[in-house]
Amino acid sequence: MNKVYLALGTNIEPRDVHLSEALNLLEANEAIVIEKRSSIYETAPVGYLDQAEFLNMVIKVQTLLDPLALLDLCQEIENKLGRKREIRFGPRTIDLDILLYNQENIKEDRLMIPHPRMNERAFVLVPLAEIAADEVMPNVDRTVKDCLTELPAEAIETVIKWTNNHTA
């Protein structure tokens, strides 16, 4: 089995339903077992700013799938849930990103693992640290907790635990 961390994000209503449906579709795959779920966090958009706030979370899974097969599954789930790729960093019903896959560094045309810039993004590191603070990120050879402490406090403060949490 492969140990993988996935990030889930959504900013098109009903956001909590999209997260729940994505989790259900992942769990329905016999090659995936969800072991841990972070809380859900509400965050401001990054990149393209003229859009609604996001709900983000991270899950730890065990999977028999290789990285590209997992990417295909994630994109299939995104498509099933109506994901449109019209604006880079734009609104989305669901976004599933492979953050870490074992301790591998993978650079393919379609896939980079660890996920690029994840160590710079509070909306990824805060939920990841909740379930895997001591996990080493092989691209920077530091723990999640260490990377999180290197972010500006104002970035971390914008990642707020979502209180209407019915999904996790």
Rank of each mutant, 00 (worst) to 15 (best):
E135Y: 09
S38P: 05
S38D: 04
K145N: 10
I131T: 03
R85Q: 06
A69V: 04
P67T: 13
L71V: 10
I156C: 04
D72A: 15
P116N: 11
E21S: 13
L26D: 07
I59G: 02
I32F: 13
E120S: 12
A132R: 05
E108Y: 12
A69H: 13
T149S: 14
L49S: 13
K36I: 00
K161F: 02
N105H: 01
I32S: 06
N119P: 00
L96G: 09
E27T: 04
E157A: 15
F123G: 02
I106M: 05
T163L: 12
L125E: 01
E42F: 01
R92D: 03
E76A: 08
R110P: 00
R110V: 02
E30W: 06
L64D: 13
E150P: 01
R15P: 01
T93L: 08
D95Y: 07
R88W: 00
G9I: 07
V140A: 03
G9Q: 10
Y5V: 01
K107I: 10
E86P: 00
L151N: 10
V17C: 05
D16C: 13
I106V: 12
L111E: 05
V124C: 03
A153W: 07
L125P: 00
R83E: 11
L125S: 00
C74M: 10
R121E: 05
R88E: 05
G82C: 13
I98H: 04
D50F: 06
D72G: 05
D16F: 14
E157M: 11
A153Q: 14
E86A: 06
A122I: 12
R142V: 00
E21P: 00
Q75P: 07
Y48E: 07
E120W: 08
D134G: 09
A31D: 14
I87W: 03
I77G: 08
L70W: 10
T143I: 09
V4A: 02
P138A: 05
T143R: 03
A129C: 14
V33Y: 13
W162N: 08
I113M: 05
E78N: 14
L151T: 09
V144G: 01
I34F: 12
A28R: 15
E53A: 06
L68E: 15
L23V: 10
D141S: 13
G47M: 06
I106R: 04
A52W: 01
E135T: 14
A52L: 07
L25N: 07
H18C: 04
T163I: 07
A44Q: 09
D95S: 09
L111Y: 11
V144T: 07
P45V: 04
Y101R: 01
L148W: 02
N29P: 10
